[in-house]
Design a protein around this nucleic acid. Structure first.
Length: 214
DNA sequence: ATCCCGAGGG
DNA sequence: CCCTCTGGAT
């Protein structure tokens, strides 16, 4: 891998000042709700997930109620987040597995979390970090993937390899904020479609900068 | 590589 | 109309 630690440090320093409090955007009151909200966030905006979970969490209050939910009713609740059949099925089945295999408690290890349907590395990393304070890795979603590539922090497209590159570049204490900061910057300044490079505070350091050079 | 899938923006 | 949104399973 290219030694771009120096460039990363400069970029990270600027982004940290720009986004001093990269607060998580999903709303939840416990680890189970965090898990459910994160499953729902696949290919869907966080704001929309929050709108759906507001009534969802009022209707289903614990893992037993999610596990015993009527499939059609649950589908209707999560309908607007897209992929509603898969998401409803995964939430129900994961809840059943949590009851049968993990004493009704959301697992706190990567290995156990990955046994839940609808839960892969990205979702597991978020549950571990925000739910249990375990920093085992970096959540790589569509924003982190896109920004990492544009900023020259990785040459890979495979999320696992991107995660490894980011972990090598950054300090462990920054992992959670790094993921959230890239997401915020991606939403506000560097979206997939039309990146606004002229407004970007790290454009001088960005290999993908599309500003007209004067 | 492909499918799941509605909502919102340009 | 088109593309994208805090992915995951086959």
């Amino acid at each position: 891998m290219i030694d771009n630690t120096y460039n990363f440090n400069r970029i990270w320093s600027i982004l940290q000042k720009e986004y001093p409090h990269p607060d998580p955007a999903l709303h939840y009151n416990n680890v189970l709700e965090l898990l459910v909200a994160t499953i729902l966030s696949a290919q869907c905006t966080d704001a929309h997930v929050n709108k759906v979970t507001e009534s969802l969490f009022r209707k289903y209050r614990n893992v037993e109620e999610f596990a015993g939910a009527d499939p059609d009713e649950l589908e209707k609740e999560v309908y607007s987040t897209g992929f509603y059949r898969n998401k409803a099925k995964n939430i129900r089945k994961s809840s059943q597995i949590i009851i049968s295999d993990f004493n009704s408690r959301v697992p706190d290890t990567m290995e156990d979390l990955l046994t839940l349907p609808g839960v892969a590395r990205k979702t597991a990393n978020i549950v571990l970090a925000r739910g249990y304070g375990v920093m085992g890795g970096i959540a790589v979603d569509t924003h982190v993937k896109r920004l990492s590539k544009r900023l020259g922090l990785t040459e890979h497209t495979d999320p696992v390899k991107i995660e490894r590159d980011l972990m090598a570049l950054s300090r462990q204490e920054d992992w959670e904020d790094l993921s959230m900061t890239l997401i915020l910057h991606g939403r506000r300044v560097c979206p997939a479609r039309r990146p606004r490079c002229t407004e970007c505070m790290v454009n001088e350091l960005c290999p993908s900068n599309s500003n007209e050079s004067s």
